[in-house]
Amino acid sequence: MYRSLFPHDVFAELDRLQREMNQAFEFSPSIRGLARGGFPAMNVGGTPQSVEIYAFVPGVDPDSIEVQLEKGVLTIAGERASALPAQDVKANVHINERFAGSFRRVVTMPDDADPDKVSARYRDGMLHISIQRRETAQPRRISIQ
């Protein structure tokens, strides 16, 4: 791989530095972390009926993504090949920012997430996992007689 001696992409370097700083100083609310800056990037949210997880995994064959929910811990793992040319090919790499290699991210789910009611869909490089909450945990209005 031919790399230029002076990367002219200063702003990308600054971006990366900022990401690393954020990661180093950010307060993580959980012991398993929801630390920023990893691959894939994730958004987590919920409705009263479900927990919604969005993992941004572009360029990965959906069949090769491993999604596991075990004891309230959701794991997303897989591998992404590098798109850059092999070392013996004569080409100049100008910018190299995209993630390559194997990845694994682990998120703790709330207690009421039902492991039997999970759906996962992959579209446009985004993995959307929806986990239903247990019915017993859902708020219920009690009528007064």
Binding site: G37, A41, M42, N43, G45, T47, E52, F56, S130
Partner: peptide, 12 residues
């Protein structure tokens, strides 16, 4: 996003 979703953690 499903209706009424509240984001608890957002990287994007």
């Amino acid at each position: 996003m499903p209706e009424g979703m509240e984001a608890t953690h957002a990287e994007v």
